[in-house]
Design a protein around this nucleic acid. Structure first.
Lengths: 140, 140
DNA sequence: CAAAAAATGCAATTTTGTTGCAACTAAACT
DNA sequence: AGTTTAGTTGCAACAAAATTGCATTTTTTG
């Protein structure tokens, strides 16, 4: 994606433009799948660990990235589709491949319906992680 | 739960009986909700941290506990209903209360249907975490 | 009860994430 | 453009979380 586009996205979310933010956002967009802190650390050795941590949390706070619950113990982040500093709103549907361990966000191709919760429980949000074998691992 | 019952459960999963395992399993059964490592550390100060870590992973490997994905960064474990060393099989439906932060396993009271996955994706398992307000927090 | 196998506790280490602060940089304002 | 300001970075130190190796103790087997 063009530099000017990236800049626009970051600005729209109320953040200043910096080299690190441009690089990280660009990588997320190009890579398409969810990334862990470790992935980014490996990819961007030139930036200090602290800077990467802070980039991730700034992006999360401002609605560019969302944290995906993962039982691997590594915080994993995915690009938000349409969030802002004010409100995160997803369907939070994710696919974790048990072969390649990659986590990806599945767009609107899945419908999930919840019939009922025990009484006096109020549902506000939902995370769904489907585990299995992804397209790529499946065809190899 | 009676000591002899606890012993039977642990044995059935191919593990030796030790004080720590009895205590931890007993606590999970009595407490009913999911627990983090920290919860257990606080509860069982007498046991070494390492022993508790190893108890949790032994229980996980042998199908007594399952790890629940959580974006808080703390590994959280819940009792398995009917798993063994050979196979974990749940519907993995969990409820996380945004007020009291407690995570609990909701049994079979929820139906979820998934319409479709993108082609060439194979679903094997699913984790669902519903976030909201639990019964207890709701009535206070 | 003895031997073998496994679990525990401790110390040391590694990994992961956070904080404070000085130096630097982007954006805003003459 | 140059100055101000507010936010960002990198470093070092720190804190927290998890893991490893090993000697000791405990459980199980026969």
């Amino acid at each position: 994606m063009k530099y000017s586009e990236l800049k626009k996205i970051i600005k729209r979310h109320g953040l200043r433009i910096t080299d690190c933010r441009i690089d990280v956002l660009s990588y997320f967009i190009q890579y398409k799948k969810a990334l862990t802190f470790k992935n980014l650390e490996d990819q961007f050795e030139a930036y200090d660990r602290v800077t990467l941590y802070r980039t991730l949390s700034a992006f999360e706070e401002h609605g560019l990235l969302h944290k995906i619950p993962d039982d691997s113990g590594f915080a994993t982040y995915g690009l938000c589709q349409d969030c802002s500093t004010e409100a995160h709103h997803h369907n939070h549907i994710h696919f974790k491949c048990l072969k390649c361990e990659q986590l990806e966000c599945i767009d609107d191709t899945i419908n999930i319906s919840i019939d009922s919760l025990p009484k006096n429980y109020i549902a506000q949000d939902m995370d769904v992680i489907i585990k299995g074998v992804c397209q790529q691992c499946n065809s190899n």
